[in-house]
Simulated assay, not measured.
Amino acid sequence: MSWFDAELHPVALRRGDLEDLAFFGVAGALAAAGDAGVPATGAALRRAWDALAPGALRRLRRAGIAGYAALGLHPRRIPWRGLEALLAELPDYLGRRHVLAVGAIGLEEGGPREEALFVRQLELARELRRPVVVHTPWRDKERVTRRALALLREHELDPARVLVQRADARTVRMIRACGYAAGLSLSAGAGDALDEAVRLVASLGPDGIALGSGAGEGAGDLLALPRAAGRLAKAGLSPAVIRRVCGANARALLGLAPEPAAASARTGRPSSR
């Protein structure tokens, strides 16, 4: 089987890292704009978007991995100057090849400024009919996630096109109860995130769960996704369940074909939008 990583941070990864991913069966990945090492200025954010798409996506494809991006203004990197110009330019960036979604957007601490930016990007995603990748913080996760879910419901985005990243045992049920996909990061938080993800998939089933390595950011485990597939198999879960949480659910959310056919890997065109 081949895997699709629902949370990869490829900008910081070396060529050898990407080749290792491909060797161990990672055939595709979603890379969302984040906050790592990016000062909150308009110029720096534009450079970060360029570094991701087309920059890192090209390197992924040269390594044999079909890479796709989500671009947006992260709540931890809201510029005090030039925000309106960035929002006006964002649709053009979203029109770039292999850029399929808006994100990562969401809330970090909450409050009027973060919420206003989140809502404006949700409205843009709805207007452009794009999937949304939603960031949730490590601190005060339950409260902030609950508020983000309320804003998502208020703006009536298609639940099947929303991925709420960095869910955990405290929030995965509320995310799925709203009909959204919960992204479990295999390298994040305290304790063994990989074991926790295996436990959650085993207890809750595969519906609305997408696993992401988190590799390329902090102490992210480069091979977390193949390791998770192996542990899920050892836990007695079926190949169909493993296939869904290790790729098929994320691909469906993005409107991609169930398996990364050679033609789509070359062109980067999804089967449907």
Rank of each mutant, 00 (worst) to 15 (best):
D5A: 03
P10Q: 15
L13N: 13
L18W: 11
F23S: 15
A36I: 09
P39Q: 00
A40S: 12
T41G: 09
R47M: 06
A48D: 12
A53K: 09
L57D: 08
R58P: 09
A63V: 10
G64K: 06
Y68D: 03
A69G: 09
A70R: 03
L73T: 00
P75S: 13
I78E: 00
W80F: 13
R81P: 02
G82T: 04
E84I: 05
A85L: 15
A88L: 10
L90T: 06
P91D: 09
P91Q: 11
P91I: 03
G95Y: 08
R96A: 10
R97W: 14
V99M: 11
L100N: 07
L100D: 02
L100P: 01
E109K: 14
E109H: 12
P112A: 02
V119W: 00
E127F: 14
R129E: 13
V132C: 04
H135G: 01
D140F: 02
V144S: 04
R146H: 08
R147F: 00
E156W: 10
D158P: 12
A160N: 10
L163Y: 01
R166Y: 12
A167F: 06
A167V: 04
A167T: 07
A167S: 15
V172F: 04
R173V: 06
R173Q: 13
I175N: 02
I175P: 01
R176T: 06
R176A: 05
G179W: 01
Y180K: 05
A181I: 09
G183C: 09
L186I: 04
L186Q: 10
S187M: 07
S187L: 02
S187K: 10
G189P: 00
G191D: 11
A193M: 07
A197D: 04
V198W: 02
L200Q: 01
L204A: 06
G205N: 12
D207N: 12
D207R: 15
A210Q: 06
L211V: 06
G212V: 07
G214W: 01
L222A: 02
A224Q: 05
P226T: 12
P226L: 07
L232Y: 00
A233I: 00
P239H: 05
R244T: 11
G247Q: 09
A250L: 02
A250K: 08
R251M: 12
A252I: 01
L253N: 11
L254K: 06
G255N: 06
A257W: 04
E259M: 13
E259S: 15
A262L: 11
A262F: 11
T267L: 08
T267G: 05
R269Y: 05
S272A: 13
S272V: 13
S272D: 11
